[in-house]
Write a protein that binds this DNA or RNA. Sequence first.
DNA 1: TGATTTTCTTAACCAAGGTCAATGAAAAAG
DNA 2: CTTTTTCATTGACCTTGGTTAAGAAAATCA
Lengths: 193, 193
Amino acid sequence: MDNLHRKIIIEFLSKYAPISKELEEIILEHSGIKTLSKGEVILQEGQVSKECFFILKGCVKKFHLIDGQEKITAFYTEGQVVTPNSYTDGKPSKYFLKTMEETIALFGNPDSEKEAMSLYPELASFIGLVTEKLIVDITDEFDTWVNHTPEERYILLNQERPDLIQRVPQYQIASYIGIKPESLSRIRKRLTN
Amino acid sequence: MDNLHRKIIIEFLSKYAPISKELEEIILEHSGIKTLSKGEVILQEGQVSKECFFILKGCVKKFHLIDGQEKITAFYTEGQVVTPNSYTDGKPSKYFLKTMEETIALFGNPDSEKEAMSLYPELASFIGLVTEKLIVDITDEFDTWVNHTPEERYILLNQERPDLIQRVPQYQIASYIGIKPESLSRIRKRLTN
DNA sequence: TGATTTTCTTAACCAAGGTCAATGAAAAAG
DNA sequence: CTTTTTCATTGACCTTGGTTAAGAAAATCA
């Protein structure tokens, strides 16, 4: 694990609570690092996920297939945790996870998670914090979504995740903000005038 | 606490894991039951929440005030937990919580929660399950929302929470599904034809 | 490099929701 | 039982996004 990756993890973990070097090592030891090539499918619809992961480098999209069309509901990038619902509830996934670029991520599975938690009880409360924070983030995102128009969502996206606009094709951004590529073109035109 | 309320709680708790009579008592002892009258504001925008609650009877709406307009993002009814983001992250709330009817709820606060958890470690892992399930529910709701039109959302709401249509005024249902009351009228007309 | 595929833009027309204003119906208040 | 207020519906007109089809621009590949 190189220094950049280490920094991303530590930065992430420190958001939740002061973290000891010891706990840091425990977490690193119990997760496996993997590199995925561009366009790789991490989770299929109907499949039960056995892994959650943390992105060190790269970008992953989450999408539903509706009438043969991809409907993107999330882009995950560096420093984000991805815990598929299917990983948590053991039910077949309703959505896909697919890399947009070559992606390096730390993978964890329930067995090693349980093992680590039984060895290090402080890990459990730490995971609790991460989980609680996730709820706050998701509900905030939901509220932001429903309280804005597609045009406003595009403006917000430019402000809050300008990197995404650069690295993701526009027609996928369109899907993410809930409109068709043609409409996003028009919105962009409206905005430049 | 009467039998109906007891039943609602036990039904709720059993969704997550088999629950012992003992743990049941612990939870009941550490939460205070309160009755709120119709129209009571539980949480104000800008306020830091010190309580989460579980609804035994009644209905609570969550809404943002945008340009003086209520934008409803959730209705909570019997058997649902409400954990304000502000309760979790300690930051001022971005939204309001207000009762739609007389509402009876079990309230918990961080102090009694921590006390109970230190006395009964098994409670912590139980709360972990509840929290994880919340994430699954919220992301499912989010995905359902973004993948449907207002008309489809209205049809879904009728199927999945027919009680809400009965007990909540239509213009508030309209706000909840993201449209104006006039548009909901038109949708209803379209659907009857 | 030239060829091919992918992505982005434009335009004309359509459908759904927003706005404004008027009217009716239903509930609440007196 | 009225009166008043709140809520729901309707219609005319506007705005935004969807659809379809064509072509331009960019990225990829041979």
